[in-house]
Each structure stands twice: as structure tokens, then as C-alpha cells.
Nucleic acid binder design. Structure first.
Ligand SMILES: Nc1nc2c(ncn2[C@H]2C[C@H](O)[C@@H](COP(=O)(O)OP(=O)(O)OP(=O)(O)O)O2)c(=O)[nH]1
Ligand SMILES: [Mg+2]
Ligand SMILES: [Mg+2]
Ligand SMILES: [Zn+2]
Length: 567
DNA sequence: GCCGTTTTCGGCCCGACTGTTTTCAGTCG
């Protein structure tokens, strides 16, 4: 069993125990246990083999025993007993907005509702409204939610969600009374998928006109919640947007609250409480005082807790607070550190802009260099280059470089890794060019061993500088190809081959976790945009944010150097 | 159920909004 499976069982136990009405803190222990396993860098089973998994924070004697017996017998007795006592269909009911453990328990006890189909039947025949504590509105809402859930495609990839969020933000920015506005939540933290959009507004005036402007935006389909400090709406594209409004002097504390994560808050607030302080979205308060000791900025908030500042990308409730306590929060790589981009396409293949246009756009981003990496001929849909065309492009770039001052174009290629792991280009040209990215664009369904051997063969070729989009996953699309990424990383480390964090909107590949793992195994990391236009260069920002989530610093990233140095 | 530079027992984040609750539980952020 893999970590995901172990975590899923614990999560299901926590949900079923919630419905049964068990102690909140025991339930949280299962939730925490599930999260702890999800966050592990190594397989739980190898940690079991090596020793004591109660070393893992959040796993104690009881969970360890349960997990070990789960491994041995293939089932968890706690889980099984809950499924028998209750019903596996109840797990789906928790996905319905407005239904929590208490109402689900009531519906199960009173009406025998144990799955979504039965819930729908009961709602349609009006039985829900008759249940004590529920009513007509709840019944209608349940029906609408069941409908919506069937249509919804779940969490949205970060780039798409961020574009929508910035669109709403930019419209609200123009509204009278809006003195400050920021996108918060999982978008600000850079999670690779987004559940909903969270926007914070500061005003010293009346919030209601601003809420009114929000809910009357053309993209708003339905108002879900409308209060004095917060309003939620669903957009026509299905995305939920939560808007929270506070006073300007509370903006920092509120931004911190609205940025999350929830788990970060629970840890931070517990710590504050032990110091005699209370944190809420309005500030940090001494116990029994209404006068905040911090509220204006996030920096103030961490400072008054005797903590180093924790950047949003690290606020996931892992070990960031411990690091901040010891002043060991890494100085994360920043946009201004990025001096070049090493993966992009031009009109020579499937890009929309010329080399010179890409150069101009790169200069506008304050880069000192770029690498042009058009496709090789096996990628026919992109009009990949033959050796002749590639040779001509190398010459062309050499000429352009003569004319450039304070800027360098590296000639390069995104060479296709063919089915057998060989490279789709003349080897002499690969040796002649400055920068070789190698990636897989075909035969995604090879068996794991074959795929791993294929990629490693390319890594070992001595001709490759960087492995492109190593997993091949498409966000909100196909999974990565089946390959042993750990073996690939080790091969990269041994042969001095870098791995990219490809920031192009569909990819984020490597993702933050894998980038961290690669770095820890000694692999050099490159941030790239994989731009197919001048605009596309901006996608490097997504790669940057994933690098930050991975805890990487300027020194960990190759293209923060003033020039390409290939050892 | 987990955990410990105030604890091996006694804590465990904190607040907004909705509805059928006539005084606040449930759900969500
Ligand atoms: N203190 C506290 N804050 C919370 C809690 N739940 C949510 N928040 C805060 C932190 C979250 O980042 C922020 C926005 O909530 P969301 O439900 O939108 O979560 P988030 O944006 O982190 O993830 P998402 O991608 O939307 O699922 O509100 C909670 O239980 N306690
Ligand atoms: Mg959110
Ligand atoms: Mg939200
Ligand atoms: Zn590619």
C-alpha cells in the first residue's frame, strides 16, 4: 500500500467518527495522522521497516498499531467496524456543502439516508424539510448541491484559478472605498490546485457598497453568503469566491488569517496561546485585552510572537514554525534573483514569437540571458527541427549574439527522448549547442521499468544538461507517466544533469514536493517558463512559486547565476 | 488520540453566517 492509501483510511476513520459523534480531539488526531502521512517524503512502509513510526509527529502508539496491522492484514479493524456500524455511502455525503456530521447523523438515524441517491430521493419527496432542525431551505439547498457536485470538476489548477482571481481583484480594485486588496488563500500560498478564491479588501468606509459591487459583477452567478464582513458568491465558471472586508489597520492580521493555511493557524494560535496571546483575523491580542499588539502587517504578527517571518508558500502547518523559532526559515528565491530562462520556443517550431522578440521580452523581465529550446523533429505536431534546421538556428543565434550587448542567447534545444531512450538529434549538434533540455513527448504508457530505463538512458548520454518536465503530468489532466522518479533523480545527480521546474500553465513539473526531493538528492534545479510566446515568459513565476514552496534558495537554482556555467 | 523550555495529565484556534434554534447549533472560513 502506498502513503495515499494509508492516509485515505485514516481520513475515512476521522469522517465516520465525526458522524458517530466521537470526541473532537480524537477525530483531529486521525486527521493529523492522515496529513502527516500525506506529507511524508518516504513511503510509510519503509519507515516501518527502518524503525519506529511514532517518531512521526502526529502518529502515536495507537495510530502506529493500527497502521501496522493495516499493513499486515490489509484492513484496519477500526475502519472496518465503523463501516459496518455506519455506512460507506455516508463518506460521500460529507462532500455536500451545508451537510456536516451532525445533520448526516440525523438524516441517517431518522430517515435511513446512507448515500447520495437516497438523500436525493428524500429531498425530492419533501421528507428532509420535516426532519427536526432542518427545513425547506436546507432541503432545496441540498438538491441544488447534489446537482452541482455531479457537474463540478473539483479543484482547479493554480494558473487558471489565479487568472480568474486576478480578474476579479482588478475589477474590485476600481470600486470606490477599496483602499487595499489582495488575493489570499491557497492561491497566495501557491498550492498547485485551488478549491476556491479568497480575496481580502480593506476599507475605512462602509463595506456593503463594496459587497454590492462584487455580487453584481457580470461573472457572478449566485450569492451564497452575504454578511457584514464577508460575502461568498459562485461565478458562472463554477468557481466560488470569498470576499472578506476589514479596516485598513487590520489588513495584515486579516491577510494572514485569509492566507492560511488552516493547519498553520492551528499551530501558530496554539503557540500564541501558551505565550498568553490570542490571534484572530483582527490582530494579536494580550489575553483579556482588546488592544492589539500587532495587526497592521504580517511582519508585525510574526515579530510579536518572537518568530522569524514565514513566507506564505511555507505556511502549510509542517515544520515552518519550528524553523522560524530557531531563525532557520530559508531565504527563499525571489523574482529578482532570476537572471535567465532556459526553456522556450520560437516561430522556428510551435512558438508564436521570433528569437528577437523573445530577447526583448526577456530584457523587460531584467534577464541577462535566455536559451532558445525549440523542439526536435519527432515532435511533428510542433513542427520539430531537422538537424539542418537546428544547425541553421545555432548559426543564426551566433550572429544575433554579436549584435547584443549585456545579453546572451544560448542556443539550445528541447530534444525528444525517443521510445528507446535515444535522443532525436544529431549528436555532434547536441555537443555543439550550448544547452540541451531532453524530454518525453510520446509513448507515455510504457511499463514503469521501461520508462525509467528510457529516461535514465537519456540522462546518462553525456549530451543532456537538463531533464524537461520529468513526470509528464498535466494539471487537471493526465497523471505523470509511470516511472521511478527517485532513480531518475539519482541518475541526474550522478551525471550532473539538472531538472527543471517547468512553470507552463498545464504542468508545474516538477512540483514542489518532487523539486524538494530532487534538491535533497543533489540535483541542480532550473526554473523555466517553457514559453511559446513573449507573454509565456511570465509562467516562470509559477515555477518560482513552486521552488519557494520547496524551500529553495537562490543558491539552489541554476538560472540565478549571472551566466550559464556548465561543469 | 497526541503531546510536553510552564505539563506524563490536561489541555487541544477562533470567528462569521444561516436558519427555525426562541437563545444557538451547525457549518464553514
Ligand atoms: N483559523 C482558522 N482559519 C481558517 C479555518 N479554515 C479556513 N481558514 C482560513 C485559512 C484559509 O487559508 C482561509 C481560506 O479558507 P479556504 O477554505 O478557502 O482554504 P484555502 O484557500 O487554504 O484552500 P482551498 O484551495 O480554498 O481549499 O481561511 C479554520 O478552521 N480556522
Ligand atoms: Mg480558498
Ligand atoms: Mg475560501
Ligand atoms: Zn516539452
Amino acid at each position: 500500500m502506498d502513503n495515499k492509501e494509508y492516509a485515505r483510511i485514516l481520513k475515512e476513520i476521522s469522517i465516520l467518527r465525526q458522524i458517530r459523534g466521537d470526541n473532537h480531539f480524537k477525530i483531529r488526531a486521525y486527521e493529523n495522522g492522515a496529513r502527516a502521512i500525506e506529507n511524508l517524503a518516504d513511503p510509510l512502509e519503509s519507515l516501518m521497516d527502518e524503525g519506529d513510526i511514532t517518531q512521526i509527529e502526529g502518529i502515536g502508539k495507537s495510530l502506529a498499531k493500527e497502521l501496522e496491522s493495516l499493513r499486515e492484514t490489509g484492513v484496519s479493524s477500526v475502519h472496518q467496524e465503523l463501516l459496518v456500524e455506519l455506512d460507506p455511502g455516508l463518506l460521500d455525503l460529507m462532500k455536500i456543502q451545508g451537510l456536516g456530521p451532525k445533520r448526516i447523523k440525523t438524516l441517517y438515524d431518522e430517515l435511513g439516508i446512507s448515500n447520495v441517491d437516497l438523500l436525493k430521493e428524500a429531498a425530492e419527496s419533501g421528507k428532509i424539510a420535516d426532519v427536526e432542525g432542518l427545513g425547506k431551505k436546507t432541503q432545496e439547498k441540498i438538491l441544488a448541491e447534489i446537482e452541482r457536485l455531479a457537474q463540478s470538476s473539483g479543484r482547479m489548477p493554480l494558473p487558471a484559478a489565479r487568472a480568474i482571481a486576478y480578474g476579479v481583484r482588478d475589477k474590485l480594485k476600481e470600486v470606490k472605498g477599496v483602499e487595499a486588496i489582495d488575493v489570499a488563500g491557497s492561491i497566495r500560498r501557491g498550492r498547485e490546485t485551488i478549491g476556491d478564491i479568497d480575496i481580502l479588501v480593506a476599507t475605512s468606509g462602509e463595506p456593503q457598497p463594496i459587497f454590492e459591487a462584487f455580487v453584481t459583477l457580470p461573472e457572478v452567478e449566485e450569492v451564497l453568503v452575504r454578511g457584514d464582513t464577508k460575502t461568498s458568491a459562485r461565478l458562472r465558471n463554477g468557481m466560488q469566491v470569498d470576499v472578506r472586508i476589514v479596516r485598513p489597520e487590520q489588513f495584515g492580521a486579516a491577510l494572514h488569517y485569509f492566507t492560511g493555511s488552516k493547519e498553520h493557524h492551528v499551530k501558530l494560535r496554539t503557540r500564541a496561546k501558551k505565550m498568553g496571546l490570542k490571534i484572530n483575523e483582527y490582530g494579536v491580542f494580550p489575553r483579556d485585552s482588546d488592544t492589539p499588539v500587532a495587526s497592521k502587517t504580517e511582519e508585525d504578527l510574526y515579530a510579536c510572537l518572537d518568530l522569524q517571518f514565514i513566507p506564505p508558500e511555507l505556511r502549510e502547518g509542517r515544520d515552518e514554525i519550528d524553523l522560524a523559532e530557531e531563525s532557520k526559515v530559508p531565504k527563499l528565491v525571489e523574482a529578482s534573483d532570476m537572471l535567465g530562462d532556459l526553456h522556450m520556443h520560437t516561430t522556428e517550431t510551435d512558438g508564436r514569437n521570433t528569437i528577437l522578440e523573445m530577447v526583448e521580452a526577456a530584457k523587460a523581465r531584467n534577464y541577462r540571458y535566455i536559451a532558445i529550446t525549440d523542439h526536435s523533429q519527432a515532435v511533428t505536431v510542433a513542427g520539430g527541427m531537422t538537424p539542418n534546421r537546428f544547425e541553421a538556428q545555432i548559426a543564426q543565434i551566433r550572429e544575433i549574439n554579436q549584435e547584443l550587448e549585456d545579453f546572451r542567447i544560448y542556443s539550445g534545444i528541447e530534444v525528444d527522448i525517443l521510445k528507446d531512450g535515444s535522443l532525436d538529434m544529431d549528436h555532434d549538434l547536441l555537443r555543439e549547442t550550448d544547452w540541451v533540455v531532453a524530454s518525453v513527448h510520446s509513448h507515455f504508457n510504457l511499463p514503469k521499468e521501461e520508462m525509467t530505463a528510457r529516461v535514465i538512458r537519456a540522462v546518462e548520454s553525456g549530451l543532456v544538461h537538463c531533464l524537461g518536465h520529468a513526470t509528464g503530468r498535466i494539471l487537471g489532466g493526465r497523471d505523470g507517466y509511470d516511472l521511478d522518479i527517485g532513480q531518475v533523480m539519482d541518475a541526474c545527480a550522478v551525471h550532473g544533469v539538472a531538472m527543471e521546474i517547468n512553470g507552463s500553465t498545464g504542468r508545474l513539473d516538477l512540483n514542489a514536493d518532487l523539486a524538494r526531493m530532487a534538491h535533497d538528492r543533489g540535483v541542480k534545479i532550473v526554473l523555466t517558463s517553457d514559453a511559446h510566446s513573449t507573454r509565456g515568459l511570465e509562467d516562470l513565476d509559477y515555477a518560482l512559486q513552486q521552488a519557494r514552496r520547496a524551500g529553495l534558495t537562490k543558491a539552489d537554482i541554476m538560472n540565478t547565476a549571472p551566466e550559464l556555467s556548465l561543469g
